[in-house]
Amino acid sequence: MNVRSKVELADIAIPSTADTMPTAALMLSGPPIEPLTRLMTYDSGKWEEFINEWVTSLGTTYKSVQRFTGAGDKGVDVAAFTDSKQLLGVWHNYQCKHYSKSLGPADAYLEIGKCLWFSFNEEFDPPSRYFFVAPRGVSTKLGLLLANKSKLKAGLYKAWEKTVSTKITSTRSVELEGDFKAYVEAFDFTIFEAAAPLKILEQHRKTPYFIQRFGGGLPARPKVNDLPETIDPHEAVYTKKLFAAYSDHSGASIQTPKDFTGLPKLRKHFNRSREAFYHSESLRVFVRDKTEPGTYESLQDEVCDAVADTCDGDHSDGLARVVAVTDKAQNLKLDAHPLSPSTFPRDLKGICHQLANDDRLDWSDDD
């Protein structure tokens, strides 16, 4: 006997994208991933790298920051030092844990045990602050223990034999007795705390590493300040080279802006060159704290490599060389460079003058 199925079937609705416009970036990489979600995909090594970057954002709080990797780190992942004594001075420990769940008491007890044991054995002075850092934060239970130090210590004692004693080192069991127990009794458990992932991200956003890790691009550039009337000392080299190029072109001796009398086209070119220089200087300052070290310098290198042959070519005079090189620069396509979206043609011309200022480009044979 045939039994008719009573299961009702329905067509699967295809999600509509009619209200969005596809972009090249979307088609290439898919929708952006929220930073907190991206952190969940890290392995323990990348998580420690991220925390190391974050700690650098804490500014003048620390004299130096070091990341300890590999076996035998004695429970020190990222150490931040406030003085030159490092592990024997005043320092903070950032204990990195990257698990598929929030950090629980058992995880914390073992790390606290390591801190107690190795500081007792004078491997390092106890840190003045000890942070647990995990992408999913700490569990409610651990959070409550960290907020109540007497209960944290009591919980450690209770869990010691099962969770801690045999896992501190691979060579022996560490018993909570004798001088070591007296050391633990007197230890300041208020140093242990947890760092909130969202706060970490908020502070990491201020580092030059954030954009490369999480994308999103640079913010809009501020307007460039008005050109100063007088030549600043840091403009001395490239402006001197321009004066030599103008002298080569005109046959007149041009050593200061006052010598442009009767030469309006050269004066205008000089003013445009200074404007371009300051435009590129504003870009350099703009990206300095928003990108990794060397990012702007790599843009300068790209421009230098692109215009080198033009600069070395034959030209009727120094000014002709300047014009040929800066024209070549402003027409460059640097789409693959991370600063491309924030770079204008005038910046590229200005970079040529920055390179001249650094003695990487010359306009006249006697420069």
Rank of each mutant, 00 (worst) to 15 (best):
N2V: 14
S5M: 09
I12S: 14
T17L: 13
P31F: 03
T41N: 09
S44G: 00
G45S: 13
G45T: 02
W47T: 05
E49Y: 06
E49R: 02
V55E: 02
V55W: 11
Y62N: 07
K63L: 13
Q66F: 11
G70V: 14
G72C: 01
D73F: 08
G75T: 01
V76I: 15
L87V: 14
G89N: 01
K97E: 01
G104A: 15
A108T: 09
Y109A: 07
Y109W: 12
I112R: 03
S119Q: 04
F120R: 01
N121P: 06
E122C: 08
E123D: 15
Y130L: 10
F132C: 01
V138W: 06
S139I: 10
T140Q: 08
L146I: 02
K151Y: 10
G155L: 06
K158W: 14
W160V: 10
T163W: 11
V164D: 02
T166Y: 06
E177F: 07
G178L: 03
D179F: 13
K181D: 11
V184K: 04
E185C: 01
T190F: 04
I191N: 03
E193N: 15
L198I: 13
I211V: 13
G217D: 06
P222K: 07
V224A: 10
P233N: 12
P233Q: 04
E235Q: 02
A236T: 09
A236Y: 13
V237W: 08
T239F: 00
Y246P: 06
D248F: 04
G262H: 01
L263P: 05
K265L: 15
R267H: 07
R267K: 13
R274M: 04
A276L: 02
F277Y: 14
E281R: 15
L283F: 00
R284V: 12
V285G: 05
F286Y: 10
V287M: 02
R288H: 14
T291F: 06
T291H: 01
E292G: 04
P293N: 04
S298M: 06
L299Y: 05
E302Q: 11
D305H: 05
T310K: 07
C311S: 07
Q330N: 11
K333Q: 15
L334P: 03
F344D: 03
F344M: 14
R346N: 10
D359I: 05
